[in-house]
Nucleic acid binder design. Structure first.
Lengths: 343, 343
DNA sequence: TAAGTTTCCGTAAACGTTTACGTAAATTTC
DNA sequence: GAAATTTACGTAAACGTTTACGGAAACTTA
């Protein structure tokens, strides 16, 4: 394995200076065409490849580099958040260095460290499901690293964030089912008590309570929805449990569109008519929700806007110390067929 | 806006040498505990972070920063490719800097330049629809930047790539429709003649020809599918055109699952029964394809594997000069309800 | 107390590229 | 044909970290 050629190798072989070689390879002026040709030929032969490390070091370019960490990169919502971040980053000539925590706080921490070592100017992140804020995120604040949190909250966090009103979304969804005549409204949520699912569940409970209803424990099924590739199956399984109850529900508010779709799957296979026998509301307004039959009523979550705003906040936070930027997006219900009401 | 602290800053403030500071910060021997403490304290206060560029340069280790450019970041296939790239990058302690070209060659070029300026060690990219290889990609080869192309090809490109056999996929899909008794097989493709759609269309034509059929021009509809948010609508519109023909087709091979779903939409609204009256095959095995009714027969494209391999190739290309790595993945047909054959 | 041993720190040269500056030789200008 | 300009190169010092080497001062040993 012969070593990688550098400018000096070419210079030595041709008996000229490094600078001249440099000029030839970078289309600089002050060089003879003949010399240039010889240099380019030799560079070609020796397969010269510039050392980007040395270049960056010399140029002192630790460019505007923003670290973005998301739990699942090929999840539509998060991918769209990333798209939103990028769209604004592009306008500011910022570069995005991306990582996927796969909902693993340890991995998340590792990525954060890598990013900081790499010299990112700050972090925009949607924390992992049960991310350790104290260990992973708070230390960054102490180091005055600009950071914007997306989509998930932690009680003692007082920094910048862009959230959605998950509580309100859960409330609206449940209220909507009540308004459409459903009485026995079940909920399929996430096992994780730190997830945003908790807020949606609280909204669900609150809406029921406000209507004088106190949901039975058996109507609330918590499911492990860590793996996005199996979420639909989890919805299916949860539905199976619900419909084996003595007194099955007549509506389901699912914490996720995918879960809701799993429920629809189950209902179809078991000849349970939607929305006549079963009303369903999901969460996210995923692409699929509009094309499954019946079309799924869902709560809209605009990832693109959230991403854009997150980058804006990041920008501001980077240039002004002390100031804090926070926003909670209201969520709108998108009413479609799956919750049209009982016959 | 104060500059990033370096060893020299700490050394100067304490009136000691850089080497001593280095020793303190790296747990080396030959240092007094008292001195060490002072250095660590100051380093903490000044928020010292080692310059990874300088470290890697001195240690002769390439910095593991890979630029990834994709046409559409929140498209499931591309997002999954990204996930695959990341999964392997993670194993190699590589970092991913990501950009979205939005199918715009100008933007693509700009991102490439930004990435090179930032000192990425190379590029993995799925070129934009009508990317200008000569202008955007070939120059990188001349600079000996390691590069791996995904998903799209250009005749004169002789470098590393990871492709799918789109021609074969189109052939298989069409053949499958023929095998199931469909005779008048239409195709909805992409307007862009440089896109992968062309290969799929060629496969379609070839399969028909091999069966002694020469498709009418009116059975091939090309649609502008640039915007992923409207692709389904485009499929719907194309179907509308097809079914207003005097002699409408009895099957459609769509260049994309989303297009196929648009066709299904149209069929449902117009009481055209699938698969009895109309067979449909899509392309991509998108998540949705398995949950739309009827379930969509489609050609599987394993983005995750492609991403992983792309990173592997990138790794190899970075350390071995001259060698070229190329792979074309065979595509499997996933047979579901939408093409079960005529009654 | 002279010689040997630690302890602690500094000097200077790398890593590969970029760039300000300098300067012979060749060319142009008047 | 002397002066001014241009052409085509070279020198050396950066960028921030690492490391081989050397050497005073403090401490030990006989």
């Amino acid at each position: 394995m012969n070593k990688r050629t550098k400018l000096k190798d070419i210079a030595d072989q041709l008996g000229i200076s490094i600078t001249t070689v440099y000029r030839a390879l970078n289309n600089k002026s002050d060089i003879n065409e003949e010399t240039k040709r010889k240099i380019l030929d030799l560079a070609n032969e020796l397969e010269y490849r510039p050392n980007s490390l040395a270049i960056s070091l010399r140029k002192n370019k630790m460019i505007p580099l923003v670290g973005v960490i998301l739990p699942i990169i090929n999840h539509y919502f998060f991918a769209t958040v990333l798209k939103g971040i990028m769209s604004n980053a592009h306008l500011h000539n910022s570069l995005i260095i991306a990582g996927e925590s796969l909902q693993d706080p340890t991995k998340e921490k590792r990525i954060l460290d890598q990013f900081m070592d790499q010299g990112v100017s700050g972090i925009i992140m949607a924390p992992a499901r049960n991310s350790n804020f104290e260990k992973n995120i708070i230390p960054l604040l102490h180091k005055r690293t600009p950071i914007v949190i997306i989509d998930r909250m932690y009680d003692h966090y007082k920094g910048n964030y862009v959230l959605t009103d998950d509580y309100g979304g859960g409330y609206k969804a449940t209220q909507h089912l009540l308004d459409n005549g459903y009485k026995r409204i079940a909920h399929i949520g996430s096992t994780d008590d730190k997830s945003i699912g908790t807020e949606r569940r609280k909204g669900y409970v609150a809406a029921l309570n406000d209507a004088g209803i106190f949901p039975k424990e058996e109507y609330i099924i918590l499911s492990d929805i860590d793996n996005p590739d199996t979420t639909i199956e989890k919805g299916y399984e949860a539905a199976a449990i619900l419909f084996k109850l003595k007194n099955p529900p007549d509506a389901v508010f699912a914490v996720t569109d995918d879960i809701a779709i799993g429920v629809i799957e189950y209902a179809k296979e078991n000849n349970i008519f939607i929305p006549e026998e079963l009303g369903i509301v999901g969460f996210s307004n995923s692409k699929m929700s509009n094309y499954i039959r019946p079309r799924l009523t869902t709560v809209e979550q605009n990832g693109f806007k959230m991403g854009q705003l997150a980058f804006d906040y990041f920008s501001k936070a980077s240039s002004s110390y002390g100031e804090v930027f926070q926003k909670t997006f209201d969520l709108d219900l998108i009413i479609r067929e799956s919750s049209l009401g009982k016959k």
